[in-house]
Design a binder for these strands. Sequence first.
DNA 1: GTTGAAATTAGTACGAA
DNA 2: TTCGTACTAATTTCAAC
Lengths: 212, 212
Amino acid sequence: MSDISSHGGSGGGPSGRIGIGLDLDATHLKILEVLRDNGRISVSSLAERVGISRANAYTRFEALRADGVIKRFTAEIDHVRTGLGITALIFVTVRQQMWRQFRAELARMPEVEYCAITTGQHDAMIQVRMADVAEVHAMVTDRLANIPAVKATETVFILDEVLKRPYVLPSDRDKTRPARRPVQEEQRGDVPLGKMRFVGAAEGRAALRKDD
Amino acid sequence: MSDISSHGGSGGGPSGRIGIGLDLDATHLKILEVLRDNGRISVSSLAERVGISRANAYTRFEALRADGVIKRFTAEIDHVRTGLGITALIFVTVRQQMWRQFRAELARMPEVEYCAITTGQHDAMIQVRMADVAEVHAMVTDRLANIPAVKATETVFILDEVLKRPYVLPSDRDKTRPARRPVQEEQRGDVPLGKMRFVGAAEGRAALRKDD
DNA sequence: GTTGAAATTAGTACGAA
DNA sequence: TTCGTACTAATTTCAAC
C-alpha cells in the first residue's frame, strides 16, 4: 500500500518521465470520460459507449493502463458513513532542508488523504479525515507539532464539499464554456484586477521539491 | 454528469440523511480497503481476499453500493499525461448572500476538480487542473473575477502532489500509529503550542452552508 | 481495426447449515 | 446471516477477415 505518488510533480517541474509513450486521441479521452463515471464498466460496454469495436477497446484500455495514464481504479466512498465525517485542511510551514523528514512522517499518517507542496504563504497543504474535531486537534498538536520539520501550522475546517470530480479531462473544457465565451470577450478589460492576488513561492522552495 | 455532490456536507452540518441504513463491520471495511486499491476487482476475487463466501461478497457489495457508502467507481488518471499538468488552488472570498450564484457558476466550470467551503480567512477553496499557468491566470481573471459573488481570490500553485489516497478508512488508523503512540504519550505537554493556529469561520458562514 | 465463435468467468437463485 | 452449489447470462480471449 504505497501511497506516495511515484510520478513526478504535477507542476511541470523535475518530472522524470520525458518520452511520452502514448499520445491520446479523442477516443482515448472518451474512454477516460466513461471510466470516470463508471470505473467498473466492462470493456464490452465501454466499447459500445465509445463507439469502437471490442478488440479496439481492449487494446486501448490496456495501453492506457500500461502507459500509466490510468494509475488505478478505485471506489469513491461516503466518509460520513464510515465515521470520518470531519475534514480539515492543515497548511504547514516546513523548515528548510527538512523536507525528507516531513515526507517520511507523512507516510506514517494514514488519516492524511492528500498532501501537496504549494507556492504561497505556506509550504504544504494536507487534507485529513477524522471522526471529530477533537481528533483533528490532537493530530495537529500531538503529531504534526512533534515533527521537527514542521515550523508552523494553520488549520481550517471544511464545512461542505460542494464539488468533487474524480478528475478533469482536456475534453471537459469544450462543454460548458462556449456559451459563456462571448461574455468573456466583451468583459475583457473591465476586470477589477485589484481584487485578486497571486501568491508566489517562498525562497528556494521550488528547488526543494524532491526530497531535500 | 451531475458533479455536485448530492450528499450533505462532510462537516457534520445539516446533512439530510439521519437514519443509518447500514452499520459497517470489520468485513465491510475490509471490502472497502480492497476496493480502494483495486476498484475493478471481481466480486469472486474480492470474496477470496476478504475471506468470505462468494454469495456473501455479492450481498455486502450490493449493500454498500445501494446504501451509498460506495458512491461510485472511478479511474485515477495521470493529469500530466492528459495535458493538464498544472494544478492550482484558488482561495475565494464569497460575498454574503451570494452563495447560490457562486455554486451555480461553479457548475459551469469543468476544469474545477474540487471545491470546498472552509472556515478561516477565505470562504472556499477550489482546485483546478490546467494546461499551463497562463490558463490558470485567465481562469481567475476572466471567469472567477466576473462572478459578482466573488469578492476576492488568492491563487497558489501546486508544485508537487506528495500523497493522494483515494480515501481514508477508520481501519487505517490502527496500522501505522501504534508504533508511535508511546512517543506521543511521552511528548504530550512539551508541545510548542505557539507554533500552530486554528482559524475559525468568518461571521455567519456556517449558517450559509447550503445555498444562501 | 473489425467481426464471430469458443472458453472462461461473472452474476443469480436456491436449499442447507 | 452465511455458505455451497448449480444454473444462466455475460464477458474475455483468440481466431480469421
